[in-house]
Simulated assay, not measured.
Amino acid sequence: MMWRALSADWLKIRGKGIWFLVFLGPVGLIAMQGLNFGLRYDYLRGQYQADLWDGLLSNIASFVPIALYLGGTLVSSLIANVEHQTSAWKQLLALPVPRTAVFMAKLLLCLLLLAVSCLLLSAGTIVLGLLLGFGVQPIPYTDVLRIGFAAYAAAMPVIALQLWLSLSSRNQTLPVSVGLTLSLLSPFGLFFSEWVPLSWPDLAWSASRPWLFSGAGLLLGLLVLFPGALHFARKDVD
């Protein structure tokens, strides 16, 4: 059931601008760091000459949390608005498909789209490093993949919360406002306690045991997911 709902949702997002957002995040980050290193090439190359790739990854990593939170907010809102704007919820939920399957299909679609963004970020990082001449040192493929996907796992609670809010409210002011607020606070994540989930995407890159924060994000994301699916299954929709 969920896979049929996912296939239908995949077709619905055509022409909705969602794919533009999926590409905009990673391309924007890579372009920004390309400009940063291009304008200060000699200085930054000298500063990071011991490990050029680590210098590039560290500069990109500081902007990944805000991109994830903002991207998750906008993608969730646009996916929900496909049904809200056409008032199609009653017709959709009248079909012989469990409400939980509808919720899970939209969650999976959101996660797949954000995973594509993370993959594009990793690929773009390698391309940028090669263009900057960093190919003289071995490419740290594990760290290149970790820069996006570790933070992605750590940000899962916020992504699940954003989809829950977006699907539950016809007026997207609240979910978008919450997402924007969290995005603006995310650059200060390292100043928060490690018990604050908002800091986990940063710690998933910079902590001595980063896997703990990625794992905590996945676990808390599941804990947020269950009440969200239950609330959606019981809620009356317009």
Rank of each mutant, 00 (worst) to 15 (best):
W3G: 00
R4H: 11
L11E: 01
K12G: 02
K16T: 15
I18C: 09
I18G: 05
F20W: 12
L24F: 15
P26A: 07
A31T: 08
Q33K: 01
G34E: 00
R40K: 06
Y41Q: 06
R45Y: 14
Q49N: 07
L52W: 15
L57R: 08
S58M: 10
A61Q: 09
P65C: 02
G72W: 11
A80K: 03
A80N: 05
N81V: 02
A88M: 13
W89F: 12
R99W: 10
A105Q: 08
L112A: 12
L112P: 00
V116F: 04
L131Q: 10
G133V: 05
G133L: 01
I139F: 09
P140F: 01
T142R: 07
T142Y: 09
V144I: 15
R146N: 08
G148A: 10
A150K: 04
A155Q: 09
M156S: 14
I159D: 06
I159S: 10
A160F: 15
W164A: 06
S166K: 00
S168K: 04
S169G: 00
R170I: 08
T173F: 14
V176H: 01
L180K: 01
L185N: 00
F188E: 01
E194D: 14
P201C: 11
D202F: 13
A204E: 08
A204Y: 09
W205Q: 08
S206G: 03
A207Q: 06
A207S: 13
A207R: 06
W211P: 01
W211V: 13
S214P: 05
A216V: 03
A216P: 02
L223T: 13
L225V: 11
L230M: 14
H231M: 10
K235H: 07
